[in-house]
Amino acid sequence: MTLSISLTVNGLARSITLDDPRVTLLDLLRERLDLTGAKKGCDRGQCGACTILVNGRRINACLALALSYDGADILTIEGVAQGDELHPVQSAFIDHDALQCGFCTPGQIMSVIGLLREAQTGNDPERIREAMSGNLCRCGAYIGITEAVLDAQNRMADAEGHR
């Protein structure tokens, strides 16, 4: 059985033929599209390392069957910078030491971008921590991550204000 889907991945239209219906979005990105930014941590929806945006919303790519996402617009960590210019959330993670080993970081950053689009937390650190609870960090960079979210949110609001 061959199964075909179309996806937009980081702005590029991709036509994909699958020989197996079991392929998840995570495996598709990592094994077939050479986009290894999204990480396979638990592969069971518990750690958040595979977080990507689908149609603007953050999801766990490991629990998404690729076939079910025909036509979707996908954004991964590889697609968030503008050329050499980092996304404000990426810059804020560096400035606030919001990582140590870095394994969870692509998922953390995609989750933060999703969180900012959801616009539910404001600048309340407690709401930010709650909204980030689906991303585990074994190095324990949580304090820096929360600071980075607050800072990135301010930078993006400022940039918006200067337009």
């Binding site: 999801i59 766990n60 998404a64 999703g114 959801e118 980030m132 689906g134 991303n135």
Partner: peptide
Amino acid sequence: GASAQLRNV
């Protein structure tokens, strides 16, 4: 319940 990622799906 769950996490923001799971609640989105």
